[in-house]
Deep mutational scan, measured.
Amino acid sequence: QIFVKTLMGKTITLEVELSDTIDNVKAKIQDKEGIPPDQQRLIFAGKQLEDGRTLSDYNIQKESTLHLVL
Rank of each mutant, 00 (worst) to 15 (best):
residue 1 Q to S: 06
residue 1 Q to Y: 14
residue 2 I to Q: 00
residue 2 I to T: 01
residue 2 I to G: 00
residue 3 F to H: 03
residue 3 F to K: 07
residue 3 F to Q: 04
residue 3 F to C: 06
residue 4 V to E: 01
residue 4 V to D: 00
residue 4 V to S: 00
residue 5 K to F: 14
residue 5 K to D: 15
residue 5 K to C: 14
residue 6 T to P: 06
residue 6 T to W: 02
residue 7 L to S: 15
residue 7 L to A: 15
residue 7 L to N: 15
residue 8 M to E: 15
residue 8 M to Q: 14
residue 9 G to T: 03
residue 9 G to V: 01
residue 9 G to A: 09
residue 9 G to K: 06
residue 10 K to R: 06
residue 10 K to A: 07
residue 10 K to L: 03
residue 11 T to V: 13
residue 11 T to D: 13
residue 12 I to D: 03
residue 12 I to T: 08
residue 13 T to V: 14
residue 13 T to Y: 09
residue 14 L to F: 08
residue 14 L to C: 09
residue 14 L to A: 07
residue 14 L to V: 07
residue 15 E to H: 04
residue 15 E to M: 04
residue 15 E to F: 04
residue 16 V to S: 10
residue 16 V to E: 01
residue 16 V to Y: 12
residue 18 L to C: 03
residue 18 L to H: 07
residue 20 D to L: 08
residue 20 D to G: 08
residue 20 D to C: 07
residue 21 T to N: 08
residue 21 T to W: 04
residue 21 T to P: 04
residue 21 T to D: 04
residue 23 D to H: 02
residue 23 D to C: 04
residue 23 D to L: 04
residue 23 D to V: 06
residue 23 D to F: 09
residue 23 D to P: 08
residue 23 D to Y: 07
residue 24 N to C: 07
residue 24 N to Q: 13
residue 24 N to R: 08
residue 25 V to E: 00
residue 25 V to S: 01
residue 27 A to P: 08
residue 27 A to N: 04
residue 28 K to V: 09
residue 28 K to W: 10
residue 28 K to H: 11
residue 29 I to R: 00
residue 29 I to Y: 02
residue 29 I to F: 05
residue 29 I to C: 07
residue 30 Q to W: 05
residue 31 D to Q: 07
residue 31 D to V: 08
residue 33 E to R: 01
residue 33 E to H: 01
residue 34 G to T: 07
residue 34 G to Y: 03
residue 35 I to D: 14
residue 36 P to Q: 08
residue 36 P to L: 05
residue 36 P to R: 03
residue 36 P to Y: 07
residue 37 P to I: 12
residue 37 P to E: 06
residue 37 P to M: 12
residue 37 P to Y: 10
residue 37 P to C: 10
residue 38 D to C: 05
residue 38 D to W: 02
residue 38 D to E: 01
residue 38 D to S: 03
residue 39 Q to F: 02
residue 39 Q to V: 09
residue 39 Q to D: 07
residue 39 Q to E: 12
residue 39 Q to T: 11
residue 40 Q to P: 01
residue 40 Q to S: 09
residue 40 Q to Y: 02
residue 41 R to W: 10
residue 41 R to Y: 12
residue 42 L to G: 00
residue 43 I to R: 13
residue 43 I to G: 15
residue 43 I to W: 13
residue 44 F to P: 00
residue 44 F to D: 14
residue 44 F to L: 13
residue 44 F to W: 02
residue 44 F to A: 14
residue 44 F to N: 12
residue 45 A to R: 14
residue 46 G to Q: 13
residue 46 G to E: 11
residue 47 K to Y: 14
residue 48 Q to F: 05
residue 48 Q to S: 02
residue 49 L to E: 00
residue 49 L to V: 13
residue 50 E to Y: 10
residue 50 E to P: 11
residue 51 D to P: 09
residue 51 D to S: 05
residue 52 G to C: 06
residue 52 G to H: 12
residue 52 G to I: 06
residue 52 G to V: 12
residue 53 R to D: 08
residue 53 R to I: 13
residue 54 T to A: 13
residue 54 T to M: 08
residue 54 T to E: 09
residue 55 L to V: 03
residue 56 S to M: 02
residue 56 S to W: 01
residue 58 Y to M: 13
residue 58 Y to N: 14
residue 59 N to W: 09
residue 59 N to A: 10
residue 60 I to G: 01
residue 61 Q to R: 06
residue 62 K to P: 12
residue 63 E to D: 11
residue 63 E to F: 11
residue 64 S to Y: 07
residue 64 S to D: 15
residue 64 S to R: 06
residue 65 T to W: 13
residue 65 T to I: 14
residue 65 T to G: 13
residue 65 T to H: 11
residue 65 T to A: 14
residue 66 L to N: 15
residue 68 L to S: 03
residue 69 V to R: 13
residue 69 V to H: 08
residue 69 V to C: 09
residue 70 L to H: 15
